[in-house]
Amino acid sequence: MTPTTAHLLYLIFALGGVGIYLLLPKAGRSQALAGAVIGVISVAGLLTVLAARVILPDATTVYFYLFATIAVLAAARVITHPKPVYCALYFVLVVIAVAALLVLQRAEFLAVALVMIYAGAILVTYLFVIMLAYQGGSPVYDRRSREPLLAVLAGFVLMAAVAGRAEDLPQPASPPTVAVPTADAQDAASQLHDSNTGAIGAAVMTKYVVALEIAGVLLLVAMVGAIAMSRKKVPVERFAAPVRPIGQVGREVEPY
């Protein structure tokens, strides 16, 4: 039986899992070097399998491999770096690399929205909190991963579930028959490229308008909740009205 792509991917993911496990910060002697070597081998293997069996390389897929490699390596550093600030910064790098992948897919709006919202707002807030929390170096319980083995196993299962659906491309014995797009299709494609944002807007406001409204309500609820949680508790007496006899209201005393 020749190994299918899925089998190869299982093997690579298992290797990567070992690498990540060794890289995760733990007590005792650091095994990071061995972990890094194994991890790099597994990433190289992944790229080889992808290039040879799943995604045929051409001129533009070079960029796919470039940004995908950056994203994967930076993502590994997000969970393995011992300093929380660096973890957040590697997360920023992952976001930017994924935004580049989205640009390759001609989803420019999504790419910029990802950078603006994740890198520009959410991760700055993360960084803000981390910097405030770790003024004098991070405590020991934040420099060690808690359940490295279980985490790696769970990650392996998730990745393997994806890999199980990987299918081999038919090996090109003859030159691959790429359907030449008709003039109409080319027009449609270039139009989509030109008014990417408009197409997304139209879809959101027509097909997915219910989801949009629900998201809006959810955000409102979250905002109200945040305000409710951040309010200080003020003793009631400070706001209590001065005691006054009922009969006097409207005569000597101003009504409420």
Partner: peptide
């Protein structure tokens, strides 16, 4: 001249805060 020219400038500017924050930290 990308389709998202305006958002591009905004997105780039939103990365700029990292320079200041990291410089300070």
């Amino acid at each position: 001249k990308p389709d998202i020219g305006l958002l591009y400038i905004l997105g780039v500017a939103s990365i700029g805060v990292y320079g200041v924050v990291l410089g300070g930290w």
